[in-house]
């Protein structure tokens, strides 16, 4: 059972992200499109947040570690009412707070990233802090598959089960393409689920574009009491725009006018 609102949010966020990247002649649209469904389900059905009170102390904390893919997050936050959708036009412009790697100056963004492998350790601190202060909010961290090359992530992956951080959920946007090639050819992560199991995490694997599966995984947390949960979301880089799907090129390229029109048509954006 798909939820219309999350599907519609993902569709609109994708269309906005493509427009932002085209307007700013920016990169990284492929990794923004691959995680759009994760964000849509998180921000409609999972995260306990208040768009008009982004600093509400009891909010769930969401950290985007793959900060380069921030267009999809900015679009999702704007569509959820954290700031005006019109402001997205400022993305990447001189002096804009919507900088091209995710920024905590943007309402709803907890933590600035851009260098990979930073958000999960920070998330551990938030999860520990919540536990020690007897707070009930949860911590969600979204990483790319490529950034699991970073040693800092594995330091954190070793740490979280040691401290039984079951208020922490890690999402892996497993789109199988990293900066210079296929993950399998650069530094193969397989068998990734087994690696996490060996590190004592509770592991769920889902189709990262199937909202029912995402909702099922994300609303039954922790997957095992006393353990951190990792959700391996199998995704397609560039999902939703036919000529971008599974193409390394769209880690870098910005669509021209014709490509933008085609992308928006495919995404059902009829403006």
């Amino acid at each position: 059972m798909a939820t219309a609102s999350s599907v519609e949010l993902a569709r609109r966020a994708r269309a906005l992200a493509v427009q932002m990247v085209a307007r700013a002649k920016a990169s990284h649209i492929g990794g923004a499109l691959s995680m759009a469904d994760l964000l849509a389900v998180l921000y409609t059905e999972v995260l306990n947040v208040r768009p008009h009170d982004p600093a509400w102390p009891e909010r769930d904390r969401f950290l985007l570690s793959k900060g380069h893919a921030c267009t999809a997050l900015y679009a999702t936050l704007a569509l959820r009412g954290f700031f005006p959708v019109e402001e997205l036009e400022e993305y990447g412009r001189d002096g804009s707070r919507l900088m091209a790697h995710v920024s905590h100056r943007v309402p709803g963004v907890e933590f600035s990233t851009g260098s990979l492998g930073h958000a999960l350790p920070f998330g551990l601190g938030l999860a520990l802090g919540a536990r020690w202060r007897a707070a009930r909010h949860r911590v969600f961290v979204l990483v790319s598959d490529g950034e699991l090359d970073e040693g800092s992530n594995w330091e954190a992956i070793l740490f979280a089960p040691q401290h039984g951080l079951d208020n922490l959920t890690l999402l892996v946007d497993y789109n199988r393409i990293q900066s210079l090639g296929a993950v399998a050819e650069v530094l193969d992560l397989a068998p990734l689920a087994d690696k996490f199991r060996a590190f004592r995490w509770a592991v769920r694997e889902v189709d990262g574009h199937d909202h029912s599966q995402l909702r099922d995984a994300l609303t039954r947390l922790p997957a095992e009491p006393g353990r951190p949960t990792v959700i391996l979301a199998h995704t397609i880089k560039g999902k939703g725009v036919s000529y971008m799907e599974d193409q390394l090129l769209w880690h870098y390229k910005s669509p021209d006018a014709a490509q933008l029109a085609q992308a928006l048509a495919e995404l059902g954006d009829h403006r």
């Binding site: 933590f111 601190g125 938030l126 040693g151 800092s152």
Partner: peptide, 19 residues
């Protein structure tokens, strides 16, 4: 935090953000 200074410093920042 163990022999893991990157994680130590990152989680220290997270704890600091928790008050």
């Amino acid at each position: 935090a163990g022999v893991a200074e990157q994680n130590m410093t990152g989680l220290a920042a997270g704890l600091a953000a928790s008050g």
